[in-house]
């Protein structure tokens, strides 16, 4: 297991800057998730750490040792690919053993390690099968097994769950969390799914357009987003944004320099009869999920807005309902979109 340090890492393809100076410290044993929209550079950053992409400038160090100029094979890392990248002509056993054979490890040692990994990942019945004869979830576990047997310094996961169906994704997510608890390795995990990021990470790195927007524990990002982008990216449904000084905010005292106001749907409430409302929502759509409901519509000044309600929201399309904001959970952003008073 190892720590990782990135200093001013940049990557450019010709004139296109993909990574614009990334600084990051990952502690030994930490589970760090890179999250961001498509094209934000998160996969490129992971591949740069792996050594599959050369960085344009900057430094990458593993356990304090500079590996920037080292080949991927020399860095001692293991990667689980989005496509799994299993060797199609080899059995599950050979797939998992392949890297160990490269190390010229004794045969008994290889066998012991492969069987241990297969047991942990419930792959024992499939060791003689080829990847083509496995389900998506089983292939996924083979790919993880291939990484685990090597006892790598750092595990790299590149969107490993994106090819699984929704149910399997949830199950595999839990298995990954359990796996990390069991083997305790340093893990860097790339995803565009903020639920995966929130549930798996010790710390989340939010990336956008090749830059780090914020690094922090999942709940810190949720409760104290550093800027408007992170506020909008973390949380589902998205945070509502209103222009500071607009009519629905008349009852609120905006801090100096505020340009944008933000409140999450779960921190807005529907005003009961007789209760004073901050704003009025004209309802377009109501989503009823069973345990909770979301009402989408527009406030009196036309700004789109979403509010979470209990399971028995009776409102229908065209209704006008009063909305109150939870005074303790409001966010204000300045001219530069940075959070105010954080």
């Amino acid at each position: 297991m190892a720590s990782l340090t990135l200093r001013e890492v940049t990557k450019a393809y010709g004139a296109t800057q993909i990574l614009k100076g990334i600084d990051l410290e990952v502690a030994d044993g930490e589970f760090v998730v890179f999250v961001g929209p498509s094209g934000c550079g998160k996969s490129t950053l992971l591949r740069a750490i792996a050594g599959l992409e050369r960085v344009t400038s900057g430094r990458i160090a593993i356990d304090g040792r500079d590996v920037t100029q080292e080949r991927a094979s020399e860095r001692g890392l293991a990667m689980v690919f989005q496509s799994y990248a299993l060797y199609p002509h080899m059995s599950v056993y050979r797939n998992i053993a392949f890297a160990l054979e490269n190390l010229r490890m004794p045969r008994e040692e290889i066998d012991a390690r492969v069987r241990r990994a297969a047991k942990m990942l419930r792959l024992e019945p499939y060791l003689d099968r080829k990847p083509g004869a496995l389900s998506g979830g089983q292939r996924q576990r083979v790919a993880i097994g291939r990484a685990v047997v090597r006892d790598p310094k750092i595990f790299l996961f590149d969107e490993p769950l994106s090819n699984l169906d929704a149910e399997l994704r949830v199950a595999t997510r839990k298995e990954l969390a359990a796996l990390h608890a069991e083997i305790g390795g340093t893990i860097i995990y790339v995803t565009h799914d903020q639920v995966e990021a929130m549930t798996l990470a010790d710390r989340i790195v939010v990336l956008q357009a090749g830059k780090v927007e914020q690094i922090g524990a999942p709940l810190d990002l949720y409760n104290r987003p550093a800027n408007r982008f992170v506020a909008g990216f973390i949380g589902s449904p998205k945070m509502n944004f209103l222009a500071a000084g607009s009519a629905p905010l008349a009852a609120l005292a905006a801090p100096a320099g505020a340009r944008t106001f933000g409140v999450r749907p779960e921190h807005a409430m529907i005003a009961r009869d007789g209760e004073a409302a901050d704003a009025r929502l004209s309802v377009d759509i109501v989503e009823r999920l069973g345990g909770e409901s979301y009402a989408y519509g527009a406030l009196q000044d036309g700004a789109p807005f979403c509010v979470r309600a209990g399971d028995a929201l009776a409102a229908r399309r065209g209704d006008s309902i009063g909305v109150r904001f939870d005074r303790a959970r409001l966010h204000w952003f300045g001219e530069d979109d940075l959070a105010l008073g954080a």
């Binding site: 792996a50 991927a72 990667m79 990248a85 299993l86 490269n102």
Partner: peptide
């Protein structure tokens, strides 16, 4: 790339 990560000559 997987072979490269596996340190394959």
């Amino acid at each position: 790339e997987a072979a490269e990560m596996d340190g394959t000559p």
